[in-house]
Design a protein around this nucleic acid. Sequence first.
RNA 1: UCCUGAGUAGCUCAAUCGGUAGAGCAUCCGGCUGUUAACCGGAGGGUUGUAGGUUCAAGUCCUACCUCAGGAG
Length: 383
Amino acid sequence: MPFDFNLISVDPAGARLGRISTDHGAVDTPAFMPVGTQGTVKTMSSRDLREAGASIILANTYHLYLRPGEKIIEEAGGIHRFMSWDGPVLTDSGGFQVLSLADLTRIGDDGVEFKSHLDGSTHFLTPERVVEIQLSIGSDVMMVLDHCASYPCDHPAAAEAAARTALWARRSASVGGTRIVRGGCERVLFGIVQGSVYPDLRERSCREITALDFPGYAIGGLSVGEPKAETLEMVELTARCLPAERPRYLMGVGFPEDIVEGVARGVDLFDCVLPTRNARNGTVFTSEGKLVLKNAVYARDFRPLDSRCGCETCRTYSRAYLRHLFNTGEMLGPRLATIHSLYFYLHLLEEMRQVIREQRFERWREEFYRRYGRSGTKIVSRP
RNA sequence: UCCUGAGUAGCUCAAUCGGUAGAGCAUCCGGCUGUUAACCGGAGGGUUGUAGGUUCAAGUCCUACCUCAGGAG
């Protein structure tokens, strides 16, 4: 089945229900993509991911290119076979690494020069080369190489990054178009909108990118340090400029409340390291807010992490036990915490799909905040 | 009983010629947004075994005692 996006319904509030079809299966949207940068969602097996409710995962072109190298993944039969994940895979282009590895990069209109964070070797990546690498990796959704500007970023610099992103989008699409059939599977290329926090730049970027007719569009360069109100304003504005019949992907977002607000503004796809990274570092997300496992209050708290959760961790283990695992440095701790937080995220999205289907997203959102807290960062009730 | 060595933060140890006590771990608390992250940051915590002495000044030098370890008998 070729790539397709079917917009099923739109809630009166603006939230969208849809379905993405790929040769590796379907993704009901709005959806959250667990981040598996190096071809693994840290601590999670493929079966764990399925049981947590994942339908699509994200991997990173830059990291896989450095290690093990895209040729090895190609020899293995592609990323799906290599990591034994038969669902859809989206690969990020490495555009974010332009920002996160800023000390090791030099950027020009031709492309980006990376100094490998592993061995210091230098690599020059062009937008064309990044598409070719992703074709070798075998992802279902490829992202164009973009220039993700830092924050704060003045207007001229943001304009330059957005213009470069548009130039690179054209060059990316010139490799084989925006839909490429390879190995019996259709691979699609998503464009990325930039423009920092400047409405005029966001609008211009939208026009330039959508002119290239990508099968999907990402909103990039947000949640890089700007105030939340600005993030939401940019999401809202950008979503309005994007074609309704194509999926919209808000890159790198976010906290549960950020995702709820993104869905409310018509976003279909999200990814973020927060549920996995924070879990490994001892903080999990629950229906009542975040829970910092290492805190002493949980030493004798024998309740599950989240009484409303049905994950393996919550069905089997207590807060006190998880705290013990973290305090002793046992590796089961990060694993059980990751299982929980991903389950929580993925089921939060499932819940949102349900209420959009039933046209009651707005009321549900109020209920969510009553339980979770407006700030979304409160410590859950003490024992 | 004698000889030698050692007693400093909860633990393991630093501290120059005598100059006004630090670190790692542990504890407690934060942070983490397209992963350079099982990571990073902060805080609390001391009558330096006890009692004297020398000195402007003692964790440091001297005396006695206490405790521990090793050795001798």
